[in-house]
């Protein structure tokens, strides 16, 4: 995945069964962002792989004051890349569950 300066990782072990997974997001390189992020650390949240979109979560993070609105796309892309990797891994490891 492209280095967006925003890191997203699983915050729990993925067993491929739950559609809602815990993710953790933090800024690795603030220089890649257009606005100044709130200096708050790692943000943990639950993401539903079946019902939600990365754009929804990114928008809620902007509205909650974690990021400037000009960075909504980069935050969404960071989440989208991680979600795609999780879904790819699920299909590969647990194809029968998907």
């Amino acid at each position: 995945a492209e280095d967006t300066g925003v890191r997203v990782e699983l915050a729990e072990e993925d067993h491929g069964r739950k559609s809602a997974i815990a993710l953790r997001l933090w800024v690795e390189d603030p220089k890649k962002l257009k606005g100044k992020p709130k200096d708050s650390g790692a943000i943990e949240f639950t993401f539903d792989l079946e019902r939600e979109t990365p754009e929804d979560v990114a928008q809620e993070m902007i509205e909650s004051g974690f990021f400037h609105e000009s960075d909504v796309k980069i935050v969404a892309k960071s989440i989208r890349d991680r979600v795609a990797l999780i879904q790819w891994r699920r299909k590969r490891i647990w194809p029968a569950l998907q």
Binding site: W26, S40, A42
Partner: peptide
């Protein structure tokens, strides 16, 4: 370490914790 919780009006909960030093990139 301290945890902060932010709840968005749509109901999503964001839990904020310090990033461990080992996870920060060297610049």
């Amino acid at each position: 370490s301290s945890l902060t919780q932010v709840v968005h009006s749509a109901g999503r909960r964001f839990i904020v914790s310090p990033v461990p030093e080992s996870r920060l990139r060297e610049s």
